[in-house]
């Protein structure tokens, strides 16, 4: 198992850099993972991450892209409720990249 170390704390990850223990997640490690993905976290990025974590809390899975866009739109205004907005924040796909930063397991399957 691979690990990453941020400010003295060790986090276990899988081969692809996703956290193994979701409980270990904190903002430090999120910021760190974001830099490995060449993303610098802004307020807008955090809005998505926070929603993902809330949704996961309830349903034990990341939301569908469509659910995510709709929720972001409702919460933050219709102009942000588009997949273009999300792709602009997370170019490798909001599903996987944002999940990784949010410390959620990777969505698998034909996605």
């Amino acid at each position: 198992m691979a690990t990453i170390e941020v400010s003295g704390k060790t986090y276990e990850t899988d081969e692809e850099g996703y956290l193994v223990n979701l409980g270990e997640w904190d903002m430090d490690v999120a910021n760190y993972i974001a830099t490995t993905e060449s993303i610098s976290m802004t307020e807008q990025h955090w809005e998505v991450i926070n929603f993902l974590r809330e949704y996961f809390e309830e349903y034990q899975i990341a939301p569908a892209v469509r659910v995510l866009t709709k929720a972001i739109g409702k919460k933050l205004g219709a102009e942000k409720g588009t997949s273009e907005y999300l792709y602009a924040l997370y170019p490798y796909g909001p599903g996987k990249q944002a999940c990784k930063i949010a410390g959620l397991p990777k969505p698998t399957g034909c996605v």
């Binding site: 349903y59 034990q60 899975i61 939301p63 569908a64 469509r66 659910v67 709709k70 397991p105 969505p107 698998t108 399957g109 034909c110 996605v111």
Partner: peptide, 26 residues
């Protein structure tokens, strides 16, 4: 990993029933 999920949760994605229902209602 995916085969494990399909047995455990019912689909490759790992989408549990309540999440599926929420998605469909949406």
């Amino acid at each position: 990993e995916i085969i494990g999920k399909v047995h455990r949760i019912g689909n490759n994605l790992g989408l549990p029933g309540p999440a599926l229902r929420d998605t469909l209602e949406g």
